[in-house]
Structures are given as structure tokens and as C-alpha cells.
Amino acid sequence: MDRSQQFMVATHTILDGGAPQTTQHVLRYAFPQGVDLVAELAGLRLVERTAGWRKERFTALGPRHVSLFERAE
């Protein structure tokens, strides 16, 4: 994990009875404020933000969010 660049490398190994298959993925994480800024620059506005797909209440301390945007008019 590189906090200054906001990315991490994840390694996944698939065990399905055959030879193990390992892959690596570079993931960039973004905090809600960063997502909001990128959306605004793309001409979108925030409609709703929840803590998950079941629409749990979002708090700033939560580890994840689902954000719904629409075109700004």
C-alpha cells in the first residue's frame, strides 16, 4: 500500500483443485471528497450517498460508500 499515491497492490490466488493461479491487481482508492470532486469536474452532482447497496446510513467513519450521481443542469 502506498498512502501518498492512494493505491495498493492486491494479490489473489485461486485454488480450484488444479494448479494455483495467482494474479495481482493495482487498486486505487478514493475518499468520498475525492470522488465528489472528480464527479463535479465531469459535470455531475451528488444525489445520494449510502454506506452500502442496502442503503445503510453513511457516516464519515465508515469504510465504504455507494454514491449516486446525476448530470448537473
Rank of each mutant, 00 (worst) to 15 (best):
V26G: 00
E48K: 14
S4I: 14
G34Q: 08
L44N: 02
P32F: 02
A19F: 04
R64P: 01
A72R: 09
A39Q: 01
V66A: 03
T59V: 15
R28H: 13
L15S: 12
Q21A: 10
D16A: 12
A30K: 07
F31R: 09
G62R: 00
H12Q: 13
L61K: 08
R54N: 15
E56F: 08
R64I: 14
S67N: 04
E40Q: 15
V38K: 03
V9H: 06
V47C: 02
H65Q: 07
R49A: 03
L46Q: 08
Q21D: 08
M1R: 15
I14D: 09
F7Y: 15
G34R: 05
S4N: 08
R57Y: 07
H25C: 10
T59K: 04
L68Q: 01
Q5P: 09
S4H: 09
E48I: 13
L37E: 12
G18T: 12
Q5A: 13
F7N: 14
Q6Y: 04
G17N: 06
Q5F: 13
A72P: 03
G17Q: 05
L46N: 04
E70H: 04
E48A: 07
R57L: 11
T23G: 05
L44Q: 04
V9L: 07
K55V: 14
E40G: 14
T23W: 03
A30V: 14
L61G: 13
L44Y: 02
G18K: 04
T50I: 13
D36R: 09
V9R: 11
Q33L: 11
R45A: 12
Y29D: 06
A51Y: 02
A10I: 14
G52Y: 01
D16M: 05
H12F: 11
Q5M: 12
V66F: 00
V66P: 00
H65R: 05
F69W: 02
I14M: 08
H12C: 10
H25D: 12
T13Y: 01
Q6C: 06
D2G: 09
D16F: 07
G62W: 01
D36G: 05
G34S: 07
H25E: 14
F7M: 10
F58L: 09
A10T: 15
R45W: 01
F58C: 09
